[in-house]
Design a protein around this nucleic acid. Sequence first.
DNA 1: GCAAATTTGTCCGTATGTATC
DNA 2: AGATACATACGGACAAATTTG
Lengths: 242, 242
Amino acid sequence: MPEHRTGGRQLLRQEVTEGIKRYILENDLRPGDPLPTESALCEALSASRSSVREAVKTLHALDIVEVRHGHGTYVGRLSLAALVESLSFRGMLGSGDDMRAISDLVEARELLERSMAGQIVAGLGPERLDAMQGLVEVMRKQETRGSDEFVDADRAFHAHLADASGNGLIGQLSMAFWDVYAVVSPHLNVISADDEQHTIAAHQRIVDTARAADIAGFSEALTEHYAPVRRRLATAQQHTPA
Amino acid sequence: MPEHRTGGRQLLRQEVTEGIKRYILENDLRPGDPLPTESALCEALSASRSSVREAVKTLHALDIVEVRHGHGTYVGRLSLAALVESLSFRGMLGSGDDMRAISDLVEARELLERSMAGQIVAGLGPERLDAMQGLVEVMRKQETRGSDEFVDADRAFHAHLADASGNGLIGQLSMAFWDVYAVVSPHLNVISADDEQHTIAAHQRIVDTARAADIAGFSEALTEHYAPVRRRLATAQQHTPA
DNA sequence: GCAAATTTGTCCGTATGTATC
DNA sequence: AGATACATACGGACAAATTTG
């Protein structure tokens, strides 16, 4: 017959969650460091395996904890994966009638990159610029519409911008938005016009202006880059008012 | 004797998680709408209570699902609560040696508000400005250092700015960062100098410049508002290099 | 390559706390 | 107050994945 808590008023699962977080903080663990096994956590926190597992799943969703089947539990990478999941679902839920969620997302992405223009241009060294130029070549080489290599190159390109911003959080936010858009955009009822050529040209201009340390031009190139996306979202918004 | 899946290779819990999300999407449910009971989900997704519960806990961490004990399960509010949790823990973990995480956070917060200065000033109507002025009065009235009313007023003040930005995502991001800073800052080894007077003056200037539709002054007022925070973080960074 | 040990994944049955009617 | 419906929690058993000898 289970005892069940009589003194603890807070939900036990919540206490276990806090207990695991406290364990990481008090032992100053870092991403990748191993955590006690489920059984050990059950004993240490005096909870059943179910409660511990549910707490671990909560922390896993936040990327505070990482679980490897048959191996163990470890400190997570503390990424913004939860934000991507959350915003992606929000975008999917709202993509039917209104796409304000996506519009806001694209606007936020452009704003982050544009407002960091100065730091990004300053932080882009020659080697990074060469790598970005190489990515533009990759995009040019691919004639295939909607190829995986094309989108991969696009993501890598913007990852360079994010890294060069000098602010890790802003860079991760920017890339999180990229990931959300990649998940949601295929489900939108927007005509994916063949503006890959436009995208390539915009990316080329971004590289050129950055190499010339032309911050104003860099900023304009970003605006030009996002213009077709915003235009498509705006027209789609009007076509489905109800 | 449990059958266990033989065909499905993906983790069952993951499939259940996707199944619940798909249920919400296909039925076009909105925040607050009820979901099937755990037992019903078990049957519909052919999984045990354990798997369903762990999946629900994952979705609860992302605020995709909300659970009321003894009542039922509902669609969540899709807030950025997960981001706040994630960033708060990141800040707590790094607050010891380096506080780059917090510095980046404060910088991001200032950047969001400053880069939306134009839209915010345009979106702040007279009624909203009066409410903000009232909040400044509240801060003035409170002599108590570190009073709850003071911080509540500060949060409400910035919530007005966030709402006026016109971009829901950016506003929620800004407030999420506020919440993270409120959680982490008490654990920092920074001397919380008595700059409440400075904060009040800065907020007053924000209201005044907004009322005068002085965007440049508004932007400067924001810089002035965040200056002492950045200064304290910078000095604390130097005092604990190792 | 095999087998044992370790660890997480899944299932079941049962008892308890909570909210509604 | 009683009845019902639901989430919370416990404990044990077996399955699957990974590492190690």
